[in-house]
Design a binder for these strands. Sequence first.
DNA 1: GCGTTATCGTTCAATGTAGAACCATTGTTT
DNA 2: AAACAATGGTTCTACATTGAACGATAACGC
Lengths: 150, 150
Amino acid sequence: MKQDQALRVSFQVMTEIAIIGHLADTALARTLPGELSIAGFGVLNHFERLDLDGESPSKLARAFQVTKGAMTYTLQQLEALGYVRIHDDPADARGKIVRITVKGRKARNAGADSVRPGMLKLLEALGGDEFARVLPFLTRLRAILDAARD
Amino acid sequence: MKQDQALRVSFQVMTEIAIIGHLADTALARTLPGELSIAGFGVLNHFERLDLDGESPSKLARAFQVTKGAMTYTLQQLEALGYVRIHDDPADARGKIVRITVKGRKARNAGADSVRPGMLKLLEALGGDEFARVLPFLTRLRAILDAARD
DNA sequence: GCGTTATCGTTCAATGTAGAACCATTGTTT
DNA sequence: AAACAATGGTTCTACATTGAACGATAACGC
């Protein structure tokens, strides 16, 4: 039957994605310089990629699909390491504003450099075109899951 | 520069995959019937998919890219729920053999059924062809990461 | 055969996350 | 403006996973 086949394929796609995510995570954890966690690297990277000066913890939590509690934990680590500073939001007494520091920028660059060789190996093995070809699908898939998550 | 662009794209692909994996995980955790964990469902599914009668814990750990300790934990849960039974390996006094039970098969079917509606929604939104189109790439990517993980 | 090295499974401490409860503040309704 | 709902951030508990150490057994080299 046609639908059964489609279900199997899509299920397998999700399974592969889960495994790849897992493998990439542990590979990333190994290459990242010691004190920088994956979640922490993600946050620092977020600032750099979007060229942000400040962002609230709750927006960060939403951006990374993580609970507020988890983001509090990550930010506390980052602040203890001196990679971000956390100020009160003058416009909203409930809120905070997270800012990346110079040291944080350096750490994120070191992290990005540590990832580069592995990425190049992947590119060499699979070809850059292949990555470009699947990216739109993945983006759409993420958007749908994101929206479906109530 | 060309290589820079390729690096950005591939990095983004890995990022999307990580996020999708995360979203799929939490969605799966919510739909699965209460006492069945994601890891547990994965193990039960493994038996069904490959039509295995028995498998050693260490092979399961490798198949799921998980430490032996994590697999011990998962299997203890599954055994406590009566979904698998764990015997000594007669051919190797160090080893154990894990077997799925009838109850375990039922649980895995219930789990599969609970996932189905969500999968159908994805299929409807993206089209089955799209999934089929990206699967080979994902399979290769997984194989490479797998091999690279020394 | 014996010593060394590898493998199997378990245990333990540490880590990172989810989920729920909570307090303070803001926004909305009436 | 008073009541109620929603939001921002923290804390706490529970849980799944890693990494390392361990004891038992097996495999290998000589």
